[in-house]
Amino acid sequence: MATSRSPAQWPGLEGVDERRFELLVIGDVGIEVRASLPDVRFTDLDADRLCYAPARAMVAGTAVNLARCAARYFRRVGVLGKVGDDAFTPVIRGELRRIGVDDRLRVEPGAANGVAVMLRDRPCGGGPGARLLVVRDDPPGRRLAEREVRAAAAEIGAADVLVTDGYSLLSPVSRAALHAAARLARAAGTRVAFDLVPHDVDARLPADGVLPMLALSDLVISEAPTLARLLGRPVEAGGQGVRDLLPVLDRAVPGRPLWLLRFGATSLERVVAYQRERLLLEYPTGYGDGVERAGFGDRLAAAELYWWLSGP
């Protein structure tokens, strides 16, 4: 892996002219309503409030959000996920076609699609504002089954990288499917990348519900405080706190995964790239005041994945 330039420098966050590699992502797929409330702080609300603000509905979910960004870097991008069977289903499939992403969706007959509402309140003190994310409590993605993943073995084996995330760990059914997908990928020589979300996964799962997936991964993207809490370590935002975490990762997770640990005031400003007993790089991401937060993490992840696959 070349370590002289960071992913934010090359390939950068705007995509590439020469698209290479094939990426398959497993994750959530659904409908999301987003709005920012420029004149409202959640902590000030003590009664009903009507607020007019920019709002939009879009096809989203962890798999779609990453695929939309990855399509600017990768020669071929596919989404493997489970969706419902309602009026939103053709909208979802149409959006995948529009952004040039292969539709590997599994449809659950008679089920409703997942819906999420994301509200962000007025920034305070120069920060991005607080985010309230409300997600349907039983989306179809939680029922992606191991047999459905095994039926996609050829697609997994054809990809250069399989990208997964922690939302699939929250259900025993999709967790088994995720583990099966990672094992299929490793057997086929496909690299496995894992994004450790949600950021409060430590409050939702014990460490032993997460560590097996980390052990199956070749690359792990995580906010450093998330990993620290999961492993019962002090949470520190600064670079030294991240460095103190590195030997803990070596003891907790076998193998030699590449860790991309995000940290800073909002856990998005800087990244440490580390691989067992070797600090490869520390770099700024380009995130800061005036940069739109929504979608920035996926843009960064797409650039990081391309950078990683391009290394020796």
Rank of each mutant, 00 (worst) to 15 (best):
191 R>I: 02
145 A>G: 11
23 L>K: 00
83 V>H: 02
243 R>K: 15
91 V>K: 05
60 A>N: 09
224 A>Q: 05
294 A>R: 09
23 L>D: 00
256 R>I: 00
152 A>R: 02
198 P>N: 12
225 P>N: 11
78 G>A: 15
111 A>F: 07
37 L>N: 09
142 R>N: 09
221 I>W: 05
42 F>M: 09
157 G>H: 03
17 D>V: 10
306 Y>F: 15
204 R>Q: 14
280 L>M: 11
99 I>F: 05
155 E>D: 14
191 R>V: 03
104 R>V: 00
199 H>Y: 12
236 E>H: 14
234 P>F: 05
92 I>F: 12
238 G>Q: 09
24 L>M: 13
90 P>G: 12
120 R>G: 07
139 P>V: 09
127 G>T: 14
193 A>P: 02
217 S>R: 03
130 A>Q: 15
161 V>K: 02
279 L>A: 13
100 G>V: 13
127 G>F: 13
146 E>K: 06
147 R>V: 12
240 Q>W: 11
231 L>F: 05
145 A>V: 04
183 R>A: 13
150 R>K: 13
113 N>I: 01
203 A>T: 08
236 E>D: 12
126 G>N: 11
119 L>V: 00
280 L>A: 10
141 G>S: 09
244 D>G: 10
157 G>N: 06
1 M>E: 06
118 M>A: 15
298 D>E: 13
108 E>G: 11
16 V>T: 07
24 L>G: 03
84 G>F: 01
177 A>Y: 03
114 G>E: 02
275 Q>R: 15
309 L>F: 12
9 Q>E: 15
186 R>G: 14
269 E>S: 11
170 L>A: 08
205 L>H: 04
50 L>Y: 05
204 R>G: 08
23 L>P: 01
172 P>R: 10
151 A>P: 02
67 A>L: 13
40 V>L: 15
214 L>F: 08
124 C>I: 10
270 R>V: 05
153 A>E: 03
60 A>R: 05
179 H>G: 15
122 R>S: 06
185 A>F: 04
73 Y>S: 06
184 L>G: 02
111 A>L: 11
293 R>S: 12
175 R>E: 06
83 V>F: 05
142 R>D: 06
103 D>I: 10
245 L>R: 05
226 T>N: 06
28 D>K: 06
36 S>V: 03
305 L>G: 01
143 R>A: 08
252 A>I: 00
191 R>P: 00
167 Y>S: 03
309 L>T: 05
159 A>M: 07
29 V>G: 01
255 G>I: 07
36 S>C: 06
17 D>C: 07
77 V>L: 12
291 V>K: 10
309 L>C: 07
97 R>E: 13
238 G>K: 06
204 R>Y: 08
61 G>C: 13
213 M>G: 01
41 R>M: 07
106 R>H: 05
105 L>M: 08
193 A>N: 06
265 A>R: 15
232 G>D: 02
240 Q>G: 12
36 S>P: 00
236 E>W: 12
144 L>V: 00
120 R>C: 14
265 A>P: 07
235 V>Y: 02
269 E>M: 09
53 A>R: 11
61 G>Y: 04
272 V>Y: 00
47 A>E: 11
6 S>R: 02
160 D>K: 04
132 L>F: 10
77 V>N: 01
194 F>W: 03
155 E>G: 02
111 A>R: 15
158 A>Y: 02
35 A>S: 14
